Every structure is written in structure tokens, then in C-alpha cells.
Amino acid sequence: MTIAKTKSVDSAESQAAGSGLQTAVTVFGMTLFTMVVGAALYGTPEQSERAFRLLPWLRPHPETTSDEHDSRSGRR
């Protein structure tokens, strides 16, 4: 009976490792959030008012399903 010989192969890169684009998008988002909060807290009153108006836009919104979209527009 013959015995098959196998050799060790380096494993593929793990899925947890982020790409450069993912890192860039994350850093951009964090920088944008930090700038808005900094302007809201430490800026002039005009800048502070504008920054507070931007804060709700930075909050994630749930995706609507087609059923929810139809009920909002009055169609079924």
C-alpha cells in the first residue's frame, strides 16, 4: 500500500484582515464625526448650530423593505 505525502501550505489571509479601502473609509468617517462634534462643542455659535443640524444625518438609518415603502406611499 502506498502512502500519500502531503506538504504544509501557508493558510490564506484571514477574513478579519481589512483592506486599505476599508481602513480609509473608517478613518474618513471617524474624522468627519470628530470634526462635526468638535465644531458643535468648541466652534462659534453659528458653526455650533450648523454642526448640531448635521448630527442626525450621521446616524445610521435602517433600510426600508418594499412593503414599508408601499405602505408609506399609499400603494399596495
Results as ranks from 00 to 15, higher is better:
residue 1 M to A: 13
residue 3 I to M: 11
residue 3 I to D: 10
residue 4 A to T: 12
residue 4 A to P: 11
residue 5 K to E: 05
residue 5 K to G: 05
residue 5 K to S: 06
residue 6 T to Y: 09
residue 6 T to L: 11
residue 6 T to P: 06
residue 7 K to Y: 08
residue 8 S to V: 13
residue 9 V to R: 01
residue 9 V to W: 01
residue 10 D to G: 08
residue 12 A to L: 11
residue 12 A to K: 10
residue 14 S to V: 04
residue 15 Q to Y: 12
residue 15 Q to C: 05
residue 16 A to G: 04
residue 16 A to R: 04
residue 16 A to F: 06
residue 17 A to E: 14
residue 17 A to C: 09
residue 17 A to M: 11
residue 18 G to V: 07
residue 18 G to S: 12
residue 18 G to P: 00
residue 19 S to C: 12
residue 20 G to V: 10
residue 20 G to H: 07
residue 21 L to G: 14
residue 21 L to Q: 15
residue 22 Q to S: 11
residue 23 T to G: 11
residue 24 A to H: 06
residue 26 T to L: 07
residue 26 T to F: 03
residue 27 V to H: 04
residue 27 V to Q: 04
residue 29 G to N: 05
residue 29 G to E: 06
residue 30 M to N: 05
residue 30 M to P: 00
residue 31 T to R: 02
residue 31 T to C: 02
residue 31 T to D: 02
residue 31 T to I: 04
residue 31 T to G: 05
residue 32 L to R: 03
residue 32 L to Y: 01
residue 34 T to P: 05
residue 34 T to A: 08
residue 35 M to T: 00
residue 36 V to D: 02
residue 37 V to K: 03
residue 37 V to N: 02
residue 37 V to M: 07
residue 38 G to K: 04
residue 38 G to Y: 06
residue 39 A to P: 01
residue 39 A to L: 08
residue 39 A to M: 05
residue 40 A to F: 00
residue 40 A to H: 03
residue 41 L to A: 06
residue 42 Y to S: 13
residue 42 Y to C: 13
residue 42 Y to Q: 14
residue 43 G to S: 03
residue 44 T to Y: 08
residue 45 P to Q: 07
residue 45 P to H: 06
residue 47 Q to F: 06
residue 47 Q to E: 05
residue 47 Q to M: 03
residue 49 E to M: 11
residue 49 E to Y: 13
residue 49 E to A: 14
residue 51 A to Q: 00
residue 52 F to E: 01
residue 52 F to L: 08
residue 52 F to M: 06
residue 53 R to L: 14
residue 54 L to N: 03
residue 54 L to P: 06
residue 55 L to V: 14
residue 56 P to N: 02
residue 57 W to K: 15
residue 57 W to M: 15
residue 58 L to D: 07
residue 58 L to M: 14
residue 58 L to W: 06
residue 59 R to T: 11
residue 59 R to C: 10
residue 59 R to I: 13
residue 60 P to S: 14
residue 60 P to F: 15
residue 60 P to N: 15
residue 61 H to C: 12
residue 62 P to V: 14
residue 63 E to I: 15
residue 64 T to R: 12
residue 64 T to W: 10
residue 65 T to Q: 08
residue 65 T to R: 04
residue 66 S to I: 15
residue 68 E to T: 10
residue 68 E to H: 06
residue 68 E to Q: 13
residue 69 H to G: 07
residue 69 H to V: 13
residue 70 D to N: 15
residue 71 S to I: 04
residue 71 S to K: 10
residue 71 S to P: 09
residue 72 R to P: 05
residue 72 R to K: 10
residue 72 R to W: 13
residue 72 R to I: 11
residue 72 R to Y: 13
residue 75 R to F: 02
residue 75 R to A: 01
residue 75 R to Q: 05
residue 76 R to S: 00
